[in-house]
Every structure is written in structure tokens, then in C-alpha cells.
Computed example of a mutant assay.
Amino acid sequence: MTKNSLRLDHVVLWVADPVAAAAFYETAVGLEPIGVAEYTEGTVPFPSVRVNEETILDLAPHGLAARMKMLPGSADSAGHPVNHVCLALPADAFDALRARLEEHGVPVSGIDSGLSGARGAATRSFYFRDPDGNVVEARHYA
């Protein structure tokens, strides 16, 4: 892990049920849940899922919005998801994710090619929604 270079640390997704969201991201997407037991015990405000060793998705309940006071108007962001979050995967993991989502009955988009991203043009990509309506893109670079 590189501690002294610019990296994306986390993205906060608003969810209705953080435990259910963590279960979805674990079973349908294959991400490791973090802090679910602590959340259910009331010792942390929300659980997360690990994307990789450097990046997590925080699964914040809508009720947490009232505590969002770091900037004026921050509480108003509850329920306003980002357009989408993109996960870049190796080819085999890309195929496995698509198959796992379909096994769980999660609708997926068609496969696009050549969409531009942080690493250039992606070989393949597709989109799906989590149970809270957050849009996730999965992509594979050659």
C-alpha cells in the first residue's frame, strides 16, 4: 500500500439497510464486508465493503444524514446517490462478477467496449444497480 500518494480512499453510498447492503455486496458482487457486527452492536455508525487493499465503500444509513455537519448542507446529500461507481477488474473476475450477479437475479446492462476511464479505453464494461438504486459499473481493461 502506498500511503503518501494520491489515491481514492472511500466512497459513501446511502443505503436503506446497511446490513442488507453489505450482504448484497458480499454475495452478489464478491466484496469483503467490514464492520457489520460492530454496526449491528451499535459501536460504529455504518459498515463498509472492501474494494481492494486501498479502497472501501461505506454503506451509510439514511438516518445518519442528520449527523453530517462537516459542511453546510451536507445533510442534504442523503438520498442523492452519485451517478455511478466504477470497479475495474481482471478479465476472469469481470466474467465471474457478471455470472454471479445473474445467478442472484440482478439485472445487468449489455456489454459496452471502448469506454474511456482512468486507465484509457476499457475492453468491456457493464452496469448494474444495488438494492438501493446505486449504479455500479464493472469494467475490464486489456
Rank of each mutant, 00 (worst) to 15 (best):
R50I: 03
M68A: 14
V51P: 13
L57D: 03
L64N: 15
V36P: 05
T43E: 04
R50S: 08
H62R: 09
A37F: 00
Y39Q: 07
L57Y: 12
R67Q: 13
A21Y: 03
P61K: 02
N52L: 05
Y39A: 04
P61R: 06
E41Y: 02
F24D: 04
I56R: 09
L59F: 01
P47A: 08
F46Y: 15
G35I: 06
T55F: 07
E53K: 09
N52R: 06
P61Q: 02
E53H: 13
R67A: 10
E54T: 12
G30T: 11
E54W: 09
T43K: 11
L31Y: 08
A23G: 04
V36L: 04
I56G: 00
A23V: 03
V49W: 11
T27D: 08
E38Q: 15
L57H: 08
P47G: 02
T55D: 03
L64Q: 14
A66H: 07
E32R: 14
E32F: 01
E54H: 14
G30Y: 09
P45F: 09
A66S: 13
V51D: 12
A22D: 14
Y25I: 05
V49R: 14
E26M: 01
A21E: 08
L57F: 14
E32W: 01
P47Q: 06
G42A: 13
P33K: 05
A23Y: 02
G63F: 12
P47C: 09
E41G: 12
S48M: 14
N52V: 04
G30A: 11
F46T: 00
I56P: 00
F46R: 11
A28F: 01
A21C: 09
A28H: 07
G42I: 05
T27S: 11
N52E: 08
E38W: 03
T40D: 05
T43H: 02
D58H: 13
I56Q: 07
R67C: 03
G30F: 09
